[in-house]
Simulated scan of single mutants.
Amino acid sequence: MWQEFKKFAVKGNVIDLAVAVIIGAAFGKIVKSLVDDIVMPFLGILLGGISLTNLKLKVGEAAITYGVFLQNVVDFFLIAFVIFFIVRLYKRMERKEEVKAEVKVDQKEELLREIRDLLKTFNQTTK
């Protein structure tokens, strides 16, 4: 059983997943800070200084803090939007690099293509 576990734990996918989770946690902190420290204060200014976390409903001695829930919902959508935007930028840069890689054609390769095309046309005209 120990050998089986070692084979499973040392597989590339498990290690890749562990690295992804660690990097994802660090990236999550960056995005959360961006939302909490930059976006939300700016949004608060635009909304006239309203803080959702202060909203609550008192029922007797109990307080239902629905504002905290609303704040978490807004945070979720903002974080999801920021991650979407970052991934979109990354994909665009990735595509630009692919296009650049495709554009670079070796001169010898281009010359061989021209010779091939000339031979095709020559063979078609001689038939």
Rank of each mutant, 00 (worst) to 15 (best):
F5M: 09
F5Q: 07
K7P: 00
V10S: 12
V10Y: 04
K11D: 00
G12T: 01
V19K: 14
A20Y: 06
I23E: 15
G24Y: 14
A25E: 10
F27R: 01
G28L: 11
K29P: 01
I30V: 14
K32G: 10
S33V: 06
S33L: 06
D37M: 15
I38Q: 14
V39D: 02
V39G: 03
M40T: 04
F42S: 09
F42I: 11
L43V: 01
L43G: 03
G44V: 00
L46E: 00
L47C: 12
G48N: 08
L52G: 04
L52I: 07
L52T: 07
T53Y: 04
N54P: 02
L55N: 00
K58E: 15
T65R: 15
G67K: 00
G67E: 01
F69M: 06
L70N: 11
V73E: 00
D75G: 07
D75Y: 10
D75W: 04
D75L: 08
D75S: 15
D75F: 14
F77D: 06
L78K: 02
L78A: 04
A80Y: 11
F84L: 06
F85P: 00
R88Y: 11
Y90A: 11
K91Q: 13
K91R: 13
E94I: 01
K96V: 04
K96F: 05
K100F: 08
K104P: 03
V105M: 08
D106E: 05
K108Q: 11
E110V: 03
E110Y: 08
L111G: 02
L112I: 12
E114R: 08
R116V: 12
R116I: 14
R116P: 06
D117E: 07
T121N: 03
Q124F: 01
T126C: 08
K127D: 05
